[in-house]
Write a protein that binds this DNA or RNA. Structure first.
Lengths: 342, 342
DNA sequence: CTGAAAGCGCTTACAG
DNA sequence: CTGAAAGCGCTTACAG
């Protein structure tokens, strides 16, 4: 945008009768001294002209920007919307703008965006839940992120398994394990899990945690009991249908994420199944919709906003050695699951 | 971020053995001619060095930026998350980054953000559903937006009543009117509306539309039948409770937004009411959660993503006279409402 | 404390 | 077609 209207520092300086340099210092450095009344004059001039420093000029001069990049799967997904809400809130308090990009879980897009954000010279890049198992992709990401970091950028991943930058690790394994325990204790012995693509580290961890939890009680989750669909509501719908066709129906379905569980419940309801009367359903994540689900959804509730806040805070730290924060959540046993023998 | 690593155009030029100017032209203008093989040399040099133009330098030189600002109420709200999803998708196709800010319906914040975004020299500012009735606020917004526009910025409002920039008008009045008609035809005669703050133009329009629709059938919506709460799930919870205490309960509750209706249903269920057996509930907006609601929510479904896309497309037009696009939606009669006499 | 000047990395008239 | 140079709006050593 061409802007002949906007006042430049030059204009402020002239109006206040000082040099460019002095105006810059007065405006930028509160500890700067100066002749009596000078500071007031400069401030008044800036105010009168509605002066707003041009961030591009500043970025160019200082090699620093007031933008941070936030990489999510999809804003429309409540899980990411809540993470984003937390991150944006913290950014706001630091007078930073956040550029949000959606990868739709496409590794190429992810790479491309990291590149774009780095090229934009954003101050930090936050990657949420987008770690893939793909080795070559991981290597490329590492390379790019390291270059970005070497150039002074800050990187934070909300996931595990990234070899560069700070990390906010979500206790996917432990959470699912707790959920498994609770479900077994409730009386369940046969399960089916609706999982997303095993390319996703998050999926892998949650499946692993669930298996571990069952194994703690001597229950084995067979390969066939894990359905690989999409990590979305639609994936849940598809998964529920597949499960309903099996000869031996499990007493409990576990969705790898709340949206998956909600999709499953939707399909089950539509096809005459009672939840939890005919079959129990549990989720993972703790998005608000889990509470409004009918029946309310048993899940492992993650402090999503807090996770987003933590990630942004980490991103805004002055350069420091890799830092790792572990985040866990709380089990919420609700009416979507119950003892199958009752 | 200090970046001594990044290749500059200078480096590319040297490697290719041409001047800065030529390198710039080769990279930027595909129609530019040049000695045989020159273009290839420059391209190869850029590729080899991993050259990425510094957007701040470019912005400074051309007074143009590749960022656009998106002002929403709250990302966590599904309505805005879906609008954002549409807008971000279009921006992506145009290689633009979007800076998202949340106002939480605070007029001061809104003003402050518009200022920030304008100062950032974003190419366009999209304001979604944040029109307030406050006169002095509106005047200030108009002033700022006009200055921004005069400076070459593009502004789009997803609401009505803005005197500057393009508009995407949502048919709140007509939609609510249709909903009212359908509800009356279903057999309802007594209603209560859970509305948000009447400071919001959106609320005002939806209430108006609903009243009009009832009046078409000779039904008067009294002042007491409109509850002013928050335009949120919690507002719906609070509203439902208030309604339940009334001597004469209406046969149908209408939430000014889907989340409000969902909150109301939640409260009703928790307190032993059957929906729609004891009371019907309808919403407005058409967020996906309306479908998963139990019972599925009767609502007026807006094409939220499409609205977001349209707004972004308008924002990206070359400077043109004010443009106005009307968007309407479709009535979805679902199980949350039914004939009270049945 | 204050100012003249260089420099950040681009683009684009202006000459050749 | 090509290059030397000015300029975009800041910040910050470098002198005074």
């Amino acid at each position: 945008m061409v802007d002949r209207t906007a006042a430049r520092l030059q204009d402020v300086a002239e109006r206040a009768g000082v040099s460019l340099a002095t105006a810059s210092r007065m405006l930028g450095d509160p500890t700067y001294g100066g002749r009596a009344g000078l500071r007031e004059r400069v401030m008044a001039a800036a105010e009168a002209l509605g002066y707003r420093p041009n961030p591009h000029a500043r970025a160019l001069a200082t090699s620093t920007s007031s933008n941070v990049g936030l990489v999510v799967h999809d804003v429309r997904d409540a899980y990411f919307a809540h993470l984003s809400g937390g991150a944006i809130g913290v950014a706001e308090r630091h007078d930073l703008l956040v550029s949000m990009v959606c990868t739709y879980r496409d590794p190429h897009r992810e790479l491309e965006y990291v590149e774009r954000l780095a090229a934009q010279r954003v101050r930090a890049i936050i990657l949420t839940g987008t770690s893939f198992r793909d080795r070559s992709h991981a290597a490329q990401m590492t390379e790019r992120l390291e270059a970005y970091q070497a150039a002074g950028g800050s990187v934070v991943s909300v996931s595990r398994g990234r070899s560069v930058g700070h990390m906010v690790e979500i206790d996917n394994v432990g959470g699912m394990r707790q959920l498994a325990h609770a479900l077994v204790e409730q009386g369940h012995e046969s399960f089916a899990m609706i999982a997303g693509s095993s390319r996703l580290l998050t999926v892998q961890d949650r499946v692993k945690g669930f298996k571990l939890g069952l194994k703690d009680h001597g229950i084995e989750l067979g390969h066939d009991d894990i359905l690989t669909t999409e990590m979305s509501r639609e994936g849940g719908v598809a998964g529920a249908e597949l499960i309903s066709h099996r000869r031996r129906r499990p007493t409990c379905i576990v969705g790898v994420a709340d949206v998956v569980a909600i999709g499953a419940i939707s399909w089950l309801h539509a096809h005459g199944f009672d939840v939890p009367g005919d079959i129990s359903v549990a989720g993972f994540g703790g998005i608000p919709a889990a509470i409004d689900s009918v029946p309310p959804l048993t899940t492992f509730e993650l402090p999503l906003e807090h996770i987003g806040q933590t990630a942004m805070e980490l991103a805004l730290r002055p350069p420091s050695p890799r830092h790792m924060v572990e985040m866990t959540g709380e089990l919420r046993m609700r009416e979507s699951t119950r003892d199958p023998r009752s």
